[in-house]
Each structure stands twice: as C-alpha cells, then as structure tokens.
Design a protein around this nucleic acid. Structure first.
Lengths: 231, 231
DNA sequence: GCGCGATTTGACGCCGTCTTGAGGCGGAAG
DNA sequence: CTTCCGCCTCAAGACGGCGTCAAATCGCGC
C-alpha cells in the first residue's frame, strides 16, 4: 500500500522478470514506482517523474547505463544505484566514477537493496530545503531565524520570535495558552498567562498595521491565540 | 606522495596487517591517513583529525562498530564506509541503517574501495559548493585553509578558522551555540558557551572594521551566531 | 626543559530582555 | 447600574547573556 508521501523510485530495467520482482518488493516497502525499459524513457521520466532515487540496470537495449548515468549527472544529483549482473571490479569502478552512488551485483538480497536505498535517501534529504513561511506581507525564514515585513527586516527578541514561529507553523489553528507557554517557557510555566498578553501586545506592535485591530494575531477569548492564514 | 590538499581519511581498524595494506594503498592514491585502533580513539580523531571520509572495520576490541557509527551520526555527517569480514545480509542492513554510507565485504579489491571512496567524497562535497567563499572584503579559501581580508592575509588559530569556516559555509543561517561547539570542540563540549564568546571576540577583532559594531559575525542573543551574507 | 602561541578559565560591567505589578477597557452576568 | 472577569497597555526594576580583559594552563617544537 503506497501513499502520497512515499518516496518515488525510478526503475530502469528491461527484463520483465526483474521488473516484476522489483515492483513487488518495492511497493510493499513504501515506495511508489516509475518504470522505464530504455535509456531514452529513463531520461524523460527522470525529469517528469521527479524520482528521489534511481535503480539502474546496466544492460539496456538502447545504449549502456554508464552513458545514461553521465547524462543524468549533467543536471541532476538524484542518487543512482546500479544493479548489474556484471561483477567485475572494473565494471564497478567505471559505474561509480561515471557518477552513480552505489553498485549491487545480481543476485542481491531485497533487504540489502532496501537498506542501501534508505542510506541514499537519508543522504540526499540532508540539506533539507529552507523552510520559509509567508503570510501576507509577513515572511518568516526559520533557517535564518529572520522575520521581514514587506521590505523591512524586523528585530524580534528570542521569546517574541519563538511565539511567532510557533503560531506561524500552525497557520489558522488555535493554540491554547498552555500549549504556547509549554513550548516557549517550558512545562513549568504553563500557568503564567500574563506573559502571553505582554508578548502578544509586543508582537502586535511590531507586525500589525493597527495593533488595536489585529489582523494576523487573533485572540480566541479564554482559549488561546491563532495566526490568521488567509483573508 | 601526499600533499596538503589531499583528503584526509580516518581508518578505524585493529588488525595490523589490514592497516598496513590500507596505508600502502591509500597513501599511494592521494589520501592522507589518520589511524585508530579502537572505538574510543576513533571518536576522538573524528573530531580532532577532521577527516573527509571514514573507513570502519566492524570488529573492534572495545565495542562494535555499529555503536560507533551511531555515536558519530549524532553530530557528524562525514561519510562512513564499513569494511567487514561479515557478509551476511542482516549485517549489512544493520550497519547501513545505523548511519553508514556503504558496506564492503572482505576481501575486496582496492580499486573498488577507491571508487566507492571517490563516490562518497563527491557526494559529500557537493552541497558545500565552491571551495572559496567571498563575503565583502573577506575571502576564505577552504582548500588552502587561507583567509584574506582585502589584500592582507590573516593568521587564524585552528579554532578560529574552524568557527569562521563553519559559519561561512552556512551564510546567513543561524547556527546555535550547540551546533558550533559540537562541530568545533566535539559533542562533549556543547555546554561551554563561554568558549564561543571569547573566540567570537577574537575573530571580530581580526575581521571586523569596528569590532564593537560587527557587520559580518552577528550575535543572535541566546540562540547562536550567524555570518551576514548580504546587505 | 624552555619558550611560544593557543586554549581555557575567571572576573566584571554593560545592556537588552524578561518579569512583575498597577491600571484601564469592555462585555457579560447579576 | 454595578460587579466581575479576561484582556490590553505601560513602565520600572530584576535578571542574565554577552563582550572584554587578563591571568593561568596546556601543548608542541626546539
């Protein structure tokens, strides 16, 4: 059973038997499959299918996998794991130096393949994309810890920033006083609702056009606060 | 023959014979070697030796390599290639899932090892991008370990350089005290925030026009520091 | 063993942030 | 109308993080 968040794997392989085997193994372990039987197909699908990892058989009907690896590497850094019947050391060296990330000699165990795929995915996802939240003119760059309102860069104190980031990460959702206090001041301060009032006032003075009529930081009386996400 | 720009490889292996073999093979192919015979040594050298890749034998006298892999992964993303006599699939899966990048079963060919090391290094160096970083008049040559300000070449102590390089590799991004301490002093010193204050002051005295009004090394109060990249 | 640079540790004052309290407003309930 | 409760505002003082300087210690090369 696959879901929308499962990683996509591009399988480049021409033997029907091997394809069936991979299809069965991978879909049952949380991957979505895109399949190509030729180098040409593979190149097209590497663009349109936007796979997170590629499994590549070296023996293809229309040209060898080494050349395919090189063309992929001209523009993409998606992990490539070569699956090949050729076990000679020189084959491995050639494939790896062409730009592939790993090399498995057939026959191989499914579990090893899956583990190597996990390793490749782990590496690739490391420089995780810059999380940036935008709400109207307000822009919060979580990686840089930077808040801008239109063109102007805002200076927020540590607590102000943590509250704002927390609310912005849950746009539209009401966060209770307790939740916010626990997250920002720690579980020992969940009773100090007064802190919140002071800080919400400071934040509003900094980010609202008219702090008396808040449009972004909405009070939910006797419940908590909420970041308006639209309209 | 090795030069200053050759990549450093940390070899973690207790058998003298295997060590001799690796030493001969690697130094003749453009690597500088740092060697450890125990897990404890390895952990220390992974910090102080700042290797670009680690070769790890699983059978160590003081604990297994899987545990070592996990502790390394708590703070470092340096590529780890496991070399092991154990060829069982479950061994490979365990090692890969613990955080290693590749797994080679002994005996293996030197050329395959070298190709896999090249592949690992290629991947690792990808995100860091250019080996030279320029920010205003400041210029940091990571390959040569050289820092110039305008025309003048600056002399930085080892720790000063590591801090500066770390911040410069993440321009604009806030690095927490913990992150910097972990990267420079190792995971056992994440509490020593005082070190940072002293070293930031020294760096500012060397690279800022007016150390009292820093324009490059920005303090993010009670969070960490950040290298200004624009403006 | 000596000398030098680098690192670690300690002391201190400044400044921004946080905490705290007092007071005001407005709506709902009595 | 009065009272109560939750919320907002303002400001003053306490607190803690930060920068700075300097002394003590470490560690390496000679």
């Amino acid at each position: 059973m696959t879901t929308a968040t499962d990683p996509v794997v591009l399988v480049v392989e021409d033997e029907p038997q091997m394809r069936r085997f991979l299809r069965a193994s991978l879909t049952s372990h949380g991957f979505r499959l895109v399949e190509a039987g030729t180098a040409k197909e593979a190149l097209a699908l590497a663009t349109s299918g936007s796979p997170e990892v590629i499994l590549l058989d070296l023996g293809l009907p229309d040209g060898d996998g080494i050349a395919l690896t090189r063309s992929l590497r001209e523009w993409s850094s998606v992990p490539i794991i070569v699956l090949s019947a050729r076990g000679r050391e020189s084959d491995k060296v050639e494939a790896l130096d062409a730009g592939s990330d790993d090399y498995l000699t057939k026959p191989f165990g499914v579990n090893e393949l899956l583990a190597r795929m996990r390793a490749a995915l782990r590496r690739a996802s490391q420089p995780s994309g810059a999380p940036v939240i935008e709400i109207g003119a307000l822009r919060i760059d979580l990686a840089r810890r930077e808040v801008t309102l239109g063109e102007r860069e805002l200076h927020l104190t540590p607590n102000e920033y943590r509250i704002l980031a927390l609310l912005a990460r849950n746009p539209g959702k009401v966060l209770t006083h307790r939740q916010i206090l626990k997250e920002v001041w720690g579980p020992t301060h969940v009773g100090e609702t007064h802190y919140l009032r002071v800080y919400m006032a400071q934040l509003r003075r900094k980010i609202e056009a008219d702090p008396a009529r808040p449009e972004l930081l909405i009070t939910e009386p006797s419940v908590g606060y909420r970041m308006r996400d639209r309209g």
